[in-house]
């Protein structure tokens, strides 16, 4: 195992975050605070509680997931896309590194950044609402798994993309709608029966449901199914990255 390489990639990526602190950390925290003000205080005060949980508290897991997913994807995709764009990817390709070591460095750093952002949002939320976590271990487990899995997904997008437009395409057109329609701000029980069934095809619903369960024991689908679905997605992403490095897809000519 080339630990030195993992260390330098990880450190360089984290350094990029500290150098752009406002953009990397402050910006998602500010947008989350705005969500709290709009959905929690302004609109939320007019909505009755959801399954005995006040609306302002109910949306916290969804808001954290929204930031985790978008940040994980954007950090990891940019991390690997930028060396491709500048041409410095030659260093990674000509270094004695396995695909797993490259992934550990880049995805590890992207997941760490998302984890920091998720934790900050959680702390910020506790200033707005009275928050209690019923299953802290599972909350951390869901948080970690989501950060890692979606950073891997972002890494795949970063390799696949060959321009900045493609880099933004999936996060904007696929992920954001899925998060909004995956029960971030509501329980699917509040939807008409047809839409409840359609929502079950949304993979993000399973993440948010499992994560919300760890807070309030309130869920749309069973926790086991949530956990299994995220583990499946993790496995699929790992397999795709392995295949990309093995075949050199969009990396080696």
């Amino acid at each position: 195992m080339n630990w030195q390489a993992i260390r330098v990639i990880y450190t360089a990526e984290m350094l990029r975050t500290w150098n752009t602190l406002l953009q990397s950390i402050a910006s998602p925290v500010i947008s989350t605070c705005l969500y709290f003000v709009v959905f929690g205080s302004a609109i939320g005060s007019r909505i009755q509680s959801v399954e005995d949980v006040s609306y302002g508290v109910f949306i916290v897991p969804g808001l954290i997931m929204l930031s985790l997913l978008t940040q994980s994807i954007s950090n990891a995709s940019f991390g690997i896309y930028f060396p491709k764009f500048t041409g410095t990817i030659y260093e990674i390709l000509s270094a004695p590194l396995s695909f797993f070591e490259v992934v550990l460095g880049y995805v590890g750093a992207a997941a760490t950044k998302s984890l920091i952002i998720g934790t900050i949002i959680l702390i910020t939320a506790s200033f707005f609402v009275d928050l209690q976590i019923k299953h802290p271990f599972w909350m951390i487990a869901f948080l970690l798994l989501t950060c890692i899995t979606f950073s891997l997904f972002g890494f795949i997008i970063g390799i696949w993309a060959d321009n900045f437009e493609k880099l933004q395409l999936i996060p904007l057109l696929v992920i954001t709608p899925l998060v909004f329609l995956g029960g971030s701000f509501y329980s699917i029980d509040m939807l008409p029966p047809l839409w409840q069934k359609i929502s079950l095809f949304n993979p993000v619903l399973y993440l948010i449901s499992g994560f919300r369960w760890s807070f309030f024991e309130v869920h749309d689908v069973s926790v086991g199914v949530s956990l299994l679905s995220i583990l499946c997605f993790l496995g699929i992403c790992l397999a795709i990255v392995w295949w990309m490095f093995k075949t050199g897809y969009k990396l080696r000519q």
Partner: peptide, 11 residues
């Protein structure tokens, strides 16, 4: 330079 050295597994 330190980054490149690390990529090649050197202390």
């Amino acid at each position: 330079l330190a980054f490149s050295r690390g990529l090649h597994g050197k202390q």
